[in-house]
Amino acid sequence: MNAASVVGALGLAALGGPATQLLGMPWPTVGLLVALGALLSLDDTAWGQTWLGQPLPAGLLAGLVCGDPQAGVAVGLPFQLVTLGNLPVGQSFTGEKVSATIAGVGSAVLASPAPVALAGLGGEARGLTGWLLLGVCLLSLAGNKIVQLERGTHFAWMLEGHRTLWDGRVERFARLQMRCLLTTALRGAVMTAAALLLLAGFWLPLYQQLPDRATRACALLPLLAPPMAVAAVGDLLGWRHSWRWIASGLVAGLLLAWRW
């Protein structure tokens, strides 16, 4: 067997898994998730910026599309807390959270080997939720590169706009802007579909192959989300100024939860 046939066999095997997985999926729901990915990607970086593309709202909406809003909360809530410190300020934009969240929720509902529950405080579901969150984080980081690439192409289109400085055709600006909007929507749709394919076809089935130690480690991961949110707020606003307020909130939270 030569190297080419080995690579070919591996490629077929790689494509076969997700293809089989996808064949069993309800296509109208997948289509709706992809459309949601396009819309919320537009909202996240291009038009409106209403924050409906943030992980928690996006997760809830994706859960609603799949008929299981609780799965949306299970993925969206911890991921929201994990990424609370990511500021979408111009160049410092990090992570492509929209497609990762929607694909995370979609795969959890449509292809998960077991129900994914809110990254709560016990039970089997926590390990699977942790594993899913790892995949969502990886996809979000990978997506950031694609967003930066897209922004690089904006520069080329912006240069095209210089022609208007000579011929005075201002409608060119609207055309270029529309091109950017369409690219963002297309990017959102393609990335959501690809992320869904990867999570449903590879990532979630892998969970059952993990050794016990790894599943126990995955079960610990969702517990990181709330402390990360506190650390992010303290860091963003400066610990020196914020520790009194955070400590007051902590005491209030402890008392309220203890009584409740």
Partner: peptide, 29 residues
């Protein structure tokens, strides 16, 4: 800041009370 603290406090209590989590999980967290 207040909301972050409140959320963390409520979470820690819930974690400590949970039979599947407990003190070790609080320490890890």
């Amino acid at each position: 800041m207040l909301l972050a603290g409140t959320l963390a406090g409520a979470y820690l209590v819930a974690l400590a009370k949970s039979p599947a989590a407990g003190g070790a999980a609080v320490a890890w967290s």
